[in-house]
């Protein structure tokens, strides 16, 4: 039956039930070409209403980094800061990137207050919104990688040092194995499921789209024992997005107070980590940690669902000592 549907789809393409066909010059050739391509690339079409569970196979990638096109992280190719400073053309290129960065994620090596140019941490993943402008202007120094920037427990760890970005298990971890790890940990530490309350503190709704995606049948986070709850009173974890707008500041504080101890706060996305592109202005507070204490930072604009899952894994780790303290 599946094969029939495939054939029908293919015939539609070939026989031109399409609007585009008649109008375009030479479109027959293109459609023929498309048909051949379809034959080669056919993977999992038309099975959405079949009996198989359409999770993590077929069109979808289980890789943390997504497809090769994904803008996940910025890596600096220079070996050390000295190699940049001592080489005037390289330094020029670097400073161009500093100028073009919209969120000041790249440290200005010539600016005041940077007397120690050998210090590491010249790139702040917590501020980076992955626009790729640095790679455009300084292609020799900055490379956009598809592997996502990973969540960290301390804000200082968001500052990435030179010479490659961290990868889990050499980049071999995939979404489903991370999820199984999470399930194990939740079972050990909580003995039940992990309850999350999401709080939007002024996000652009991009992070919400990705958090919502965690609940779809592809990522299906409930199978790992993670549940989104309707009230902070039921929650172990607050997942907070946005630069903490001033109008949400009080509501965020009250939500935090309403959450029973032990509780974990996760800052999701560049805005929540550092204010992101919205910065620290009359209307924002420049990051969630200026309003409530944050335990885990998940960088990204927005972080893809796999990166969110990794952040939760770290959060459960943080829950452990807290619970002991309570006892």
């Amino acid at each position: 039956m599946m094969f029939d549907r495939f054939r029908r789809n293919r015939n539609n393409v070939v026989n031109g039930t399409d609007q585009g066909k008649a109008q375009v010059k030479g479109s027959n050739d293109i459609l023929k070409e498309l048909d051949q391509f379809e034959k080669l690339s056919f993977s999992s079409h038309g099975e959405i209403l079949g009996n198989r569970v359409a999770t993590l196979h077929g069109d979808f990638t289980d890789e943390l980094g997504g497809t090769s096109a994904f803008r996940g992280n910025v890596s600096l190719t220079a070996q050390n800061v000295k190699a940049i400073i001592d080489n005037p053309p390289v330094l020029d290129e670097y400073q161009n990137a500093v100028d073009v960065c919209p969120t000041a994620a790249i440290k200005n090596l010539l600016g005041p207050g940077n007397k120690d140019p050998t210090s590491e941490g010249i790139f702040d993943t917590g501020k980076c919104i992955l626009c790729g402008r640095c790679q455009d202007i300084a292609p020799n120094l900055f490379k956009i990688k598809n592997y996502p920037a990973l969540a960290v427990k301390r804000k200082s760890e968001l500052l990435s040092s030179l010479g490659g970005e961290p990868q889990l298990d050499g980049g071999k971890e995939v979404y489903s194995t991370l999820g199984e790890d999470l399930k194990c940990k939740i079972g050990k530490i909580l003995g039940r499921s992990l309850a999350i309350r999401e709080v939007d503190a002024g996000s652009c709704n991009g992070c919400e789209v990705e958090i919502t995606a965690l609940n779809n049948p592809i990522y299906d986070i409930e199978r790992f024992g993670v549940h989104f709850v309707a009230s902070p009173r039921h929650a172990d974890v607050l997942l907070v997005t946005g630069p903490a707008s001033r109008n949400m500041e009080i509501a965020l504080r009250m939500t935090h107070e309403a959450t029973p101890d032990p509780k974990i706060v996760i800052a999701v996305g560049a805005c929540a980590c550092s204010g992101g592109i919205f910065g620290d202005t009359y209307a924002t507070t420049g990051g969630i940690d200026n309003v409530v204490p944050v335990d885990v930072y998940i960088p990204g604009c927005p972080p893809r669902p796999a990166a969110l899952l990794y952040g939760l894994l770290l959060a459960v780790d943080r829950l452990k000592p807290n619970i002991r303290k309570e006892k």
Binding site: C131, G202, G206, G276, F278
Partner: peptide, 29 residues
């Protein structure tokens, strides 16, 4: 207006190319 982030004021303090990135984040979707 709970998510008011001062986008219009912020744009007046940015370069044109930065405002472009800001405009993408007026509403993420």
């Amino acid at each position: 207006y709970y998510t008011h982030k001062g986008i219009e004021k912020l744009a007046e303090n940015m370069k044109l190319d930065q405002v472009l990135l800001l405009s993408e984040r007026i509403s993420g979707d």
